[in-house]
């Protein structure tokens, strides 16, 4: 079993085996590390790839961010931040695959992005756009498992059904790893910042998140709320347990949770419309 885990890790860490990442990303990485480079310069680099720009703008106009009229890459960089645009650029090919092959998971991810944004705003946290992005990307490991281990995926889905277990338990049984760890490898391979990689890696185990526990807790709660609502299809049949560490970290209360659920449920109608428009 350990062989499967090592094999999967090798596949992910070798970026050549992943969906193609445009050369634009390397240029963008170099520019964003240079303090003297301007947003306009970075936007110009991304805009030179029209397909990538269109994909980024579509995600930037998703209900996860709530802007709706982001028409240029330079606007996206100003509104969402360079980090977010870079992460959307990196993950755009994965989302493309999700939209086509796993509509249920795509809707779940969009909804967790929206819910993370709403929770972050409700709690007056900073970097709401980055938290929304972490929500959008939190299950990215599932796409890689589906893409690279289709036989294992069939066994995972069968184990969930037959043994009535959570998806990550089934992934551990079949692959000796789970989507959160696979997401962590991918984040490392893409050099995603810790504020995004920690929620991806630890959204099922908040206590392990040291530096960005607040962000991880938001994504953990958002994921559970969306699973509770039955919106989309995360692959899980059952709602997971709310972890005490996340509840304490966000200082939640029954009233606050009820307000969050109301706001999120209200917004899910928009998420469904957005998803249907994309499928059309």
């Amino acid at each position: 079993m350990d062989d499967k885990r090592s094999e999967l890790k090798k596949i992910i860490m070798d970026t050549k085996t992943l969906p193609t990442l445009p050369g634009v990303i390397n240029k963008l990485n170099m520019l964003s590390e240079n303090e003297k480079s301007s947003v306009q310069e970075m936007a110009k680099i991304v805009s030179s790839d029209s397909v990538l720009s269109a994909r980024i703008l579509r995600l930037a106009n998703s209900p996860s961010y709530g802007f709706y009229r982001v028409s240029t890459i330079s606007n996206a960089m100003i509104l969402l931040g360079v980090n977010v645009v870079k992460s959307l650029a990196l993950s755009s090919s994965i989302f493309e695959i999700m939209e086509k092959n796993s509509v249920g998971l795509w809707e779940h991810s969009l909804a967790v992005g929206v819910a993370s944004n709403i929770i972050a705003r409700k709690l007056a946290l900073s970097e709401c756009e980055e938290i929304a992005t972490a929500g959008l990307l939190h299950d990215i490991g599932k796409v890689i498992i589906s893409l690279k281990c289709s036989e294992a995926e069939t066994a995972i889905l069968a184990a969930i059904r037959e043994q009535e277990i959570y998806m990550r338990e089934a992934e551990q049984l079949v692959l000796d790893t789970d989507h959160a760890e696979v997401g962590a490898w991918l984040s490392k391979s893409w050099f995603l910042p810790d504020k995004l990689s920690e929620p991806i890696s630890f959204h099922h185990n908040v206590i392990q998140s040291d530096t960005h526990r607040v962000k991880t807790s938001v994504v953990h709660i958002a994921d559970i709320i969306i699973k509770a609502s039955g919106f989309g299809n995360s692959g899980d049949i059952f709602v997971p347990k709310i972890q005490q560490a996340a509840w304490d970290c966000l200082k939640l209360s029954q009233e606050l949770l009820a307000e969050m659920v109301e706001d999120i449920e209200d917004k899910l109608i928009e998420v469904k419309n957005f998803s249907l428009e994309i499928q059309a």
Partner: peptide
């Protein structure tokens, strides 16, 4: 019934049971 099934594994957990109550009332 669907809601209750989704919460089958966590109804005894005090924090998650609060979320169940919220969804049921909604």
């Amino acid at each position: 019934l669907d809601l209750s099934r989704r919460f089958d594994k966590v109804k005894d957990d005090p924090l998650t049971a609060r979320l169940y109550a919220i969804y049921k009332a909604n």
